[in-house]
Amino acid sequence: METPTAPLLFDSSFLAKLEQLYLLSKKLFRGAHRAERRSRQVGSSLEFADYRNYTLGDDLRSIDWNIYGRLDRLFIKLFEQEQDLDISFLLDASASMRWSPEGSGRLSKFDQGRRIAASLAYIGLANLDRVNVHYFASRLEEDLGLCRGKSQFHKVLEFLRNAPALEGQTQLLPSLRTFAQRMKRRGLVFVLSDLFDAQGFEEGLALLRYQQFEVHVIHLLDPAEVRPTATGDLRLIESETGEAYEVTASESLLRRYHAEVDAFLTRASTFCTEHGIGYAQATTEVPFEDLVLRVLRDGRMIQ
């Protein structure tokens, strides 16, 4: 069942905690502006990078006179160039993400995903990274556009708040392919989805990886779809297609269902690990702040 959109609210203490965090990237990407993220380029930050021999035309201020005193040779002291990073959030906005079991009182996966995306975006903006948010379902939809600096956080929130209700089934491969083609700079990509793609999630994620993106998957799940308890003669109605499926659910059938879901989760986790993709499960029963401050940190996505 779809739930009405929950307001995106962040208190100041939580935002203060977020400011202490940093989105981890294993790779070093070339940035466009100076920022607070290390890059391969040598620049003028305070972080020492290396030495090299002095050549004509070098700035005399860069010569390390201490080395000259000891070795009687001229060396130039190199400092790292801190650059910004492109961080993209790909948020699954399909109907399955908006579903939540009737009467549970929990947030939908989509709401949970929006909050996580907002939090991570805040971290990125606080670190002067360039942040963009994309929605997708069966294809990639409009995006926020690149934002930089904390002042843009309200723009991110506004975009997340006015999320479109997309129709159609989740199709990761065409959506991620479009994303890879659209993005000129490589960077950090957070895919927030339940990965319920009938064609499989693997190809799409592998494509991003192949396109040199550093990918993190935040696997959003609802406990009711991981461990359903309803038994009896049921007429299951899928939220995405409206397709009905008649099932007589018994304890043994539920056990088989649990095993199938477990296998799916294991497959997703193993695939991500094998392909160097960050993976974290985020169920809607876990409080949102816990999720951001503990689970994502444990998943080595933030520091």
Partner: peptide
Amino acid sequence: KLKRRPLPVSTLLFWQRIL
């Protein structure tokens, strides 16, 4: 015909596989 209880679900992927 047996009257079955309607139950909305997020996906039928797993049900279809096991059945």
